[in-house]
């Protein structure tokens, strides 16, 4: 795999630590509200830069998910942008056979059965 950051390296110019454009609240808000959103974002960018799918493919899937939500007469869930992003990512990956919907579901259920506190560091 190529290193996807190569194309980004030029953007990592030194930044002012303060001021209106200071990260990470450069938009006046956190870029990601919950950690999983950043992982879903990162997966889509990483996979497209690695050529697993193209960005137009992902964009089409994202548009389809957003459009389906917007045209639904009854909304089961509130607007959640990264939920659509995640669904679109899975749509593309399942659609091209990279993963199957069943194995994603099975793995998700396995992760859900972990005991509480599984992700906290344990003293040795």
């Amino acid at each position: 795999m190529t290193t996807p950051l190569e194309g980004q390296s030029a953007t990592t110019a030194p930044l002012d630590a303060e001021g209106p454009a200071a990260p990470p609240r450069s938009n006046g808000e956190l870029v990601f509200v919950e950690p999983w959103q950043s992982r879903a974002f990162g997966m889509a960018v990483t996979l497209s830069e690695a050529g697993v799918f193209t960005w137009p493919q992902f964009r089409a899937a994202l548009i389809a998910r957003i459009s389906a939500w917007e045209s639904a007469p009854v909304k089961d869930e509130n607007w959640n942008y990264y939920q659509h992003w995640l669904d679109a990512l899975q749509d593309v990956l399942v659609g091209q056979g990279t993963v199957s919907a069943d194995e994603v579901t099975a793995r998700t259920r396995t992760l859900a059965r972990r005991p509480p506190g599984h992700d906290h560091p344990h003293p040795r």
Binding site: M1, T3, P4, L5, E34, P35, W36, R39, A40, M43, T46, L47, A50, V52, N80, Y82, Q83, L86, L89, Q90, L93, T98, V99, E103, V104, T105, R107, T108, R109, T110, L111, A112
Partner: peptide, 24 residues
Amino acid sequence: LPAALRTEALEQLLTERGLIDPKV
């Protein structure tokens, strides 16, 4: 399925297939 868990599941499956490097 909660989005956080589904995201983690996807990341695991893709990492196991060598399609993503979590560090990258």
